[in-house]
Design a protein around this nucleic acid. Structure first.
Length: 595
RNA sequence: GCCCUCGUAGCUCAGUGGAUAGAGCGUCUGCCUCCGGAGCAGGAAGUCACAGGUUCGAAUCCUGUCGAGGGCACCA
């Protein structure tokens, strides 16, 4: 492609006059183009329409059809009494001369295809560089508060690999929602009450007594993992054998708390190790505690609230929630005949508490084994008057492979690879990246060997390599030794990448393709946030990395014989760096300057 | 038995009403005097499980069949 002589310097163009702001995503601009064209055509009397329909635009599947397409002519042809192609021709003619439009054509039954001008695409580079890490930030959330509750493992054992995936999902979802304008809080619900805790305590106590040389029978349903023995050994070392002669109840109560504290510490440490931090750790026990003023627990309060609303009845000594009124399969017991509360009762109280805390929306990430539980929870939330404010995302499980071979695990025998083991072996970047690559409700095959591989077959390296490669180019342009460990390119790029670079020179195919890909990012954020689908991020990351590698192969960046083109390309390359780093930050993976 | 999720290229998966259904891996064929080859270009590869329906248009929505996985407690 020829580089014309009279390219305008971007900084002289009108759009540069305005001060930094969050420019509307390209799609908004395109939608406005079509909207205005239709309105103008109606005004001019070329088209008669009772009312102007909502203009929907989309990206054509086939890039040969252009950057954007709309079916508005087909959608409103009937109302306008024209055939779709005729109407499309009228609209196309009205937008053909706009400075952001390179080409417009009517295709098929009446699609209007539009190709953005190089000018419109070059402007995206300025957006990226001006917004930095905020590039792609949108305001869909409008500052509303959303809580994301995830992992929520029972504190009775180490995190398994599935927990790790849900942690990556929840944290990334939270990051995406933040980028989409939501005020996000991350919460971990600790099921620290109930039979599992009892079983846990009994299991540790039994191992402890074994260490003391006592003859004990291990509880039939007890946890047999090696970690139980470790916890018991620790207590044995620290506190000696005094507990062997204590009463069973005392011993188990003590061990329950000791072991619980250890597991909580483990959970926090492992999650922290992969960059996941919670704002709130919510203990189920607090829901059972009696409030001093009322003498009643949060659970009792919540049941009373439902009773007043007419959703509660007594039957055969138990207290029931009429969840079938809210399209559950059957009614559910909240308070058992023996006077204790079901897990569900506590969970309703927990959700009531969430909404009392003022969240506009609550998102739960639950393991696949809880999906039969979704309907009744939705019913309960609806009965509390918060219909449509709950999203339950089901996180499917992870199957571990090693070079194609299934890694066998058994919870009963305690033979398993914990999430911590996996993290130690593949590192947090690969773990997080792989966990996000599949859609949430899809079981995931995780190949440990592949995750560790440093080759193009490993997508996380492919993406990170693009970032490192960009940094190498920038180092070279800055005159630094490429292998110089002391150069921090992210910090210094701003100084030597010229703000007045002649971006008009960027009009070859690889350059335009790169800019088009960058322009997509705000839409990716929007879709990922709306669909709660963080796997869109990894997909986009790989797309952007690939587009960059293609550009790199075809376009020499640093060329002493062409300083102006070099300046423009450096500008584009640095924008790509910023965008890649932003995408990776939402995935929760590092953007290395060297590898 | 009932409910939920899912059947798309050899494999792993994108694609929640639009045009000739896409990507990675695998498999062939090419590309290093050159900013990081951890890269790039090209080829072959499909009855979108099956059968009906809805409409201008269906991988996508509805119904049924077949197949896979998960869930069915006064358990958590």
């Amino acid at each position: 492609m020829p580089h014309g002589a009279a390219h305008a310097i971007l900084s002289d163009l009108p759009f540069r006059r305005e001060q930094p702001r969050s420019p509307p995503p390209v799609r908004e601009l395109v939608a406005d183009l079509f909207r205005d064209a239709l309105a103008a055509a109606v005004e001019a009397g070329e088209v008669t329409l009772p009312e102007v329909p909502e203009v929907r635009i989309e990206r054509p599947r086939d890039p040969a059809h252009g950057d954007w397409a709309t079916n508005v002519a087909m959608a409103s042809a009937k109302a306008a009494g024209m055939n779709p192609r005729q109407l499309a021709d009228v609209l196309a003619a009205r937008i053909a001369d706009h400075e952001d439009v390179a080409a417009v054509e009517v295709a098929g039954p009446g699609f209007i295809n539009l190709r953005l001008s190089a000018h419109a695409l070059q402007r995206v580079l300025v957006d990226v560089r001006e917004q930095g890490a905020a590039f792609g930030r949108i305001d869909e959330g409008g500052g509303r508060r959303v809580q994301v509750e995830f992992v929520s493992a029972n504190p009775v054992g180490p995190m398994h690999v599935g927990h790790g995936r849900w942690a990556a999902l929840g944290d990334s979802m939270a990051r995406v929602l933040e980028h989409a304008g939501w005020d996000v809080e991350r919460e971990f619900y600790i099921n620290d009450q109930g039979v599992q805790m009892d079983t846990f305590a009994k299991s540790v106590a039994a191992r402890y007594l074994e260490l003391c040389g006592r003859d004990v029978e291990f509880p039939e349903e007890g946890y047999r993992g090696a970690y139980i023995v470790e916890i018991a050994r620790e207590i044995h070392t620290e506190e000696g054998e005094a507990w062997a002669d204590a009463s069973e109840a005392e011993r188990e109560a003590h061990f329950r708390e000791k072991a619980y504290a250890q597991v909580l510490e483990h959970l926090g440490r492992v999650l922290s190790g992969m960059g996941v931090e919670f704002d709130v750790w919510f203990s189920e026990r607090t829901l059972h505690e009696l409030a001093p003023e009322s003498g009643a627990s949060a659970i009792e309060h919540t049941i009373e609230r439902l009773r007043e609303a007419g959703h509660i009845y007594e039957h055969e000594g138990a207290t029931w929630f009429r969840s079938t009124e809210f399209s559950d399969d059957k009614d559910r017991v909240l308070k058992k005949a023996d006077g204790s509360y079901t897990y569900f009762a506590a969970d309703i109280a927990y959700h009531a508490d969430k909404y009392d805390r003022g969240f506009d929306r609550v998102i739960n990430i639950w393991g696949a084994d809880h999906h039969g539980y979704v309907k009744r929870m939705e019913a309960a939330v609806a009965a509390l008057g918060h219909e449509d404010k709950l999203d339950v995302v089901i996180g499917q499980l992870v199957n571990l492979f090693r070079a194609g071979e299934v890694v066998r695990m058994s919870k009963r025998t305690g033979e398993m690879v914990t999430f911590e083991d996996l993290l130690d072996e593949v590192g947090p970047d690969a773990a997080r990246y792989f966990f996000l690559r599949r859609s949430t409700d899809q079981p995931l095959d995780f190949d440990i060997a592949l995750a560790k591989e440093q080759s193009s077959e490993n997508p996380v390296y492919y993406v990170q390599y693009a970032h490192a490669r960009i940094c190498a180019i920038l180092r070279k342009a800055a005159g630094a030794d490429t292998s110089d460990e002391g150069v921090d390119i992210a910090a210094t790029a701003a100084e030597f990448v010229r703000a007045d670079a002649p971006l008009g020179l960027l009009d070859s195919d690889p350059e335009l393709t790169l800019m088009r890909k960058l322009a997509e990012w705000p839409e990716v954020v929007e879709i990922a946030a709306r669909q709660l689908a963080p796997h869109k991020l990894t997909r986009y990351a790989e797309d952007l990395a690939q587009t960059f590698h293609q550009f790199y192969t075809q376009c020499r960046v640093v060329d002493p014989d062409a300083p102006e083109l070099t300046a423009a390309r450096l500008y584009a390359v640095d924008a790509t760096r910023v965008a890649l780093a932003t995408v990776l930050s939402l995935i929760g993976v590092s953007a290395p300057e060297r590898m």
